[in-house]
């Protein structure tokens, strides 16, 4: 009974505090980018701080904060609410279900938001969402071609857009790309892998994978999927004419690297 009372009353507050602490910590350590688009950073942190102040004020001012046995009658809304959870008829037998569910929710929130290390999406999501299948991620922002030669600022997204736009081999002949991303395997050709990034428009939920194909037979022996690499190479025709990718990178060497601070592109 006491547990049910406590859980019913404080579940919302505790979940809020978990969310607030996690959000502010992500903001302070610069890891919010793993979950949401940078344009929301300021708003998210400000709302977390405001909510934190309100939550602490609620602990101080809302009666019952410290298990006071009285204090119920002046605030009927608070005192009654937990009594009427669910169907009264089922309370005796199934009454434990709701507090048990509440406790589970809190445990799940602690594990997900406070214990698990923040992480990017992985190749499991690349497989789930069609790589380079997204029209907007590639065409909404067609890169402006720089005047003569300097493509060093081009990202995976820019190159993937150009490749998809159907520019011919002549166009790529004299160009060198330097791209950083994580490795995802090509579904049909074992000699190919993609230097992959996710394009995020709002939060990780809408992330769309894009990638530049790299021809490197035996790459599986050197690298694991999901590991981050930087590839510098010029473009060539794919030796395997049957492959879906006509133009590929053929690097002499592939440099392993660490996950950048902003793993998604926007």
């Amino acid at each position: 009974m006491v547990i049910r009372r406590l859980v019913g009353r404080w579940q919302g507050m505790v979940l809020s505090l978990i969310g607030i602490v996690a959000t502010i910590w992500l903001g302070l350590t610069g890891q919010l980018a793993l979950y949401i688009h940078p344009r929301y950073f300021v708003f998210t942190v400000i709302m977390a701080v405001i909510a934190g102040v309100l939550a602490l004020a609620a602990f101080a001012l809302v009666p019952g904060a410290n298990d006071a046995p009285d204090g119920g009658h002046t605030h009927a809304g608070d005192a009654h609410a937990h009594e009427h959870d669910g169907d009264d008829a089922h309370r005796s037998r199934w009454g434990w279900l709701r507090p048990a569910g509440s406790v589970l929710t809190i445990i799940a929130a602690v594990v997900a938001l406070l214990i698990l290390p923040p992480s990017t999406l992985t190749t499991a999501t690349v497989a789930q969402r069609d790589l380079n299948g997204s029209a907007s991620a590639l065409t909404l922002k067609t890169p402006a071609l720089p005047g003569k030669g300097d493509y060093s600022s081009f990202t995976v997204r820019d190159w993937a857009s150009l490749l998809r736009s159907g520019a011919g081999q002549d166009f790529f002949a004299d160009k060198t790309a330097t791209v950083t991303g994580f490795i995802s395997a090509d579904t049909t050709d074992p000699n190919l892998f993609f230097v992959t990034r996710f394009v995020v428009t709002c939060c990780a939920v809408d992330a769309q994978p894009i990638g530049v194909p790299v021809y490197h037979p035996g790459w599986q022996n050197e690298f694991k999927t999901d590991s981050w690499v930087t590839v510098t190479s010029s473009f060539h025709a794919n030796p395997n004419a049957a492959s879906r990718e006509a133009i590929v990178l053929m690097p002499d060497s592939i440099k392993p690297t660490t996950q950048p601070a902003q793993p998604y592109v926007y």
């Binding site: 949401i36 708003f43 400000i46 997900a112």
Partner: peptide, 26 residues
């Protein structure tokens, strides 16, 4: 990987929605 992505996607929904829910409450 699938479990990691499940966590990442769920956390992403929470982190994205939380400020809007707080704003709505305010």
């Amino acid at each position: 990987n699938a479990a990691r992505d499940f966590a990442t996607l769920s956390i992403s929904v929470v982190v994205e929605s939380l400020p809007f829910v707080f704003l709505g409450i305010v």
